[in-house]
Design a protein around this nucleic acid. Sequence first.
DNA 1: CATTTTTACAAAT
DNA 2: ATTTGTAAAAATG
Length: 97
Amino acid sequence: MNKSILSTITRAALTDFQKAVYCATALIPKGETRTYAQIAAMIGRPRAARAVGNALNKNPFAPAVPCHRVIRSSGALGGFALGSATKKRLLKQEGAL
DNA sequence: CATTTTTACAAAT
DNA sequence: ATTTGTAAAAATG
């Protein structure tokens, strides 16, 4: 309903946490990868790896932030809005894999 | 504004 | 592989 849309727009303003996540993710050097835990630790929330993934998922700067460089500690690519296949391909292209 | 649900994680079992 | 713990946003009321 309209209420949901309004709620989304109201919260569309980036929070400090989101800003930190996008910044840290954008700082990842090309050809390297970071785990969600590393990003979380970088921004001061070492226990918020999950929240980091959440922020990247909503990532309003889709092409601005290299979310494809962020993977899980287990080595899994995690998820990707454009599909895990695309993410894997991008990492391979950069030489991260 | 408070409460509940969901989530692209991580560590332990 | 399954369970538990943690953190934040979106949805719901």
